[in-house]
Structure formats: structure tokens, C-alpha cells
Amino acid sequence: MDEARIVRRGAGPRLWLAGGWLLLVLLAAIFAPLVAPQDPLAQDLMLERLPPFWLDGAEPGYWLGTDSLGRDLLSRLIFGGRIAFIVAFAAAIAACLVGSTLGLIAGYFGGWADRIISRIVDIWMAFPPVLFAILLVAVLGTGLSSVILAIAIIDWTRFCRVIRAEAMGQSRMDYVENARIAGYGRIGIMLREVLPNVLPSIVALLSLEMGIAVIVEAILSFVNLSISTDDPTWGGIIAEGRLSIHQAWWVLVFPLITLILTVLSFSQFGEALKTRFDPVLR
């Protein structure tokens, strides 16, 4: 039980730091029109490439500086967070529902169901994911919903593989056998005995997947395949910042920091939640 105690001690600050950052970005994204200091699309060539507030030449009201078209970087990051979070939640939940359901069925029922589902997963994983995503968006057309759909279509296999393995282990446990002796139906056992025991993993994966969805969305918008070029996205800002790295490093650095912190927070938050959810580790 020593291990459990260490995990519990570590879970506190990790959960609060990661959760705090995510909450901050989430609130900023929800209330973007209220909290953003400027219009993220307003161009003003008189204000181009203003440095962040602590450097000489900064303008008040443009805290993180401006890009080469004079748009306010902080406001663009805040509005970009909207898109990042919509994609993260929608895509991760869709991938989770499909993948976990199929994984649970494959792992618990085994036999033919398992063979069919596992082969599909194998075939799916043979495609390089980023290439697959670019291909899908090219076919589905750009736009928010096709980005979400593409991520869900690609990443359900992550859930499926992990949940299948866990469900498989669970269904060999004596309490599952006991439930069978008592006369419970197969679906009932799956939902009542197996699902609660794989739930902590589903929660952790879900959070991790949100981070991955944020990255994939950034990659797609980096190569200009996400949504319309006007809307600010983190990937889009990074792509623009790359071009002016020598004149205005902040346009590249701040979105990168935001992206990294967000993705890291999602994975840490998931891990911390898992230990909270798991009655044995709690």
C-alpha cells in the first residue's frame, strides 16, 4: 500500500495545476469576446510586430505583442483556444464512445467478435495517422466538423486496443465467473462487473486523447487544412510565426507554449483522475 500512498500524495498538486490551467484556457475560450483585449481579426499595419509588454516599444492593450499584420496575439490565442477545445472535446468523446464500446465487446465476448474487431483495428493502425488525417480532411473538405470527424475516425483504435485488453483481463476474474453462476446475462455482466473496472482507464485515455486532438488540430491548421484561414487557430498562428521568427519571435513562442502546456495538462489531468477514480489506488 506504500505505492498507493505515494500516488495519492503526488495526485494533489498535479491534479490542481493541470486542472487549473485547463480551466483557465476553457473559461477564456468560452468568454473569449469578453476577455480578449482586441478583435482577433482586426489588422492595423501601424501596429505591426509590437513586442510583448515587458520589452521596449510595447503598446498597452497588446500584452503579448502583435503579428506581422498588426493583429493582437493574446486575443488570437484566446479565440484559437475556442477551436482547440471544441475539437478536443467533440473528437475525443466521439473516438472514446466508438473505441470503448468496440473494445469492451471484443475483450469481453472474445471469439468471433474479438477476431473481427481486432482485424479492423490492425488494418486501421497500418495507416500513418497524420497522413490519414490529411487524406480524410482532403476528402471530407475543410471545416470544423470534418476535422472532428477525421480525428475520431483515426483515433478510436487507441481506446479500442487498451479497453479490449483490460476487459479481457477483467472477464477472467472470479467475480465475473461468480456473476455467471448467479445467472446474470452477458450484457448485464459486461456493464455491471467489467465496465466499472475499466472506467478509470477510459477517463485517463479520454483526457490524453483531448491533448492528442489539440495537437492534430494544430498540425492540420499548420498545413492549412483545418478551418477557414481567417479564424485564428493555434496551428495557424504557429505557421505564421514560423515565417517571422527573426523579426517577431513571440508570434511563434507564445502559441507553442500554450499548446505544450495544454497538451501536457490534458495528459497529467487524465492520470490524476485515473488514480482518483480507482478505488484501489484512492
Binding site: D174, E177, I181, A182, G183, Y184, L199, P279, V280
Partner: peptide, 19 residues
């Protein structure tokens, strides 16, 4: 079988659902 029998299992550690 469900109504008329029951099992006392070998390993009490895995015979109860941990969650």
C-alpha cells in the same frame, strides 16, 4: 443453477468486484 447453487471460491482476493 443461479437459483439453486452458489460458489465459495478459492481466492477471496479476486472473487469480489474491486470497484
Amino acid at each position: 443453477i443461479g437459483a439453486r447453487t452458489a460458489l465459495i471460491p478459492q481466492d477471496p482476493l479476486t472473487a469480489l468486484n474491486p470497484s
